[in-house]
Amino acid sequence: MKKLSLAEHSVRELNSALHDPRAMDDGTEWYVSDPDGRHALACGLNDELQVTIDGHAGYYCAGMNQHATVVINGTVGVGVAENMMSGLVRVRGNASQSAGATGHGGLLVIEGNASARCGISMKGIDIVVGGDVGHMSAFMGQAGRLVVCGDAGEAFGDSIYEARLYVRGQVESLGADCIEKPMREEHREELRGLLAHADMDFDPGEFRRYGSARKLYNFHVDNAGIEQGDSHE
């Protein structure tokens, strides 16, 4: 295992080492100590590395991740795994706002709570939160799955497109065009897989499913085929 202390090296040195084509030589495991809330740790990784960050991380940790597995033994600041493309990011503690924002793929696991706007504009990422999520989570979610094992805050799934949402606890309120949908066997099966992948021990039967009512402008079947910029009353 390769070790690097952020008390001794800069964030740029860490990220450069992880981006170096030789990062995979002599083993793929990296251990990063003394993060002390620094921002932009382990961003833009593009190899099948296993990176452990031992402590609390700041903003945009593991952003734009591809292929790598990043585990944070602590809390993270705003925008963990933002725009993730693939791989796995696991936060052992709580996450601040906009966790997994705009993510295209991969799996983000937050073992504690995530605050506001978790999964905002998600585009294919899977997010599993062990605790609660704050207000406006999954806002404008286009694709992917958000699983909340605790409660969801106000305006959950506001203006949602085709992301799929599962909540085990209470939803404080649903956002515009987000509705509860029936939980069928295919959904329980999907959820079972996600929970297993995230290493979370919950019964899929305890969850409710939410998604788009498809009543907003773009979803009306009457609007299909309309060119952008066409006037339409």
Binding site: D36, G37, H56, G58, T75, G93, N94, S96, N113, S115
Partner: peptide
């Protein structure tokens, strides 16, 4: 405002760290 500011406090590794709710 950010965790960075707390990182040097004694016993911070064992502290309860959370974001105050809006």
């Amino acid at each position: 405002s950010e965790y960075r500011a707390l990182a040097r406090l004694p016993g911070i590794a064992g502290a309860r760290v959370w974001e105050p709710e809006p």
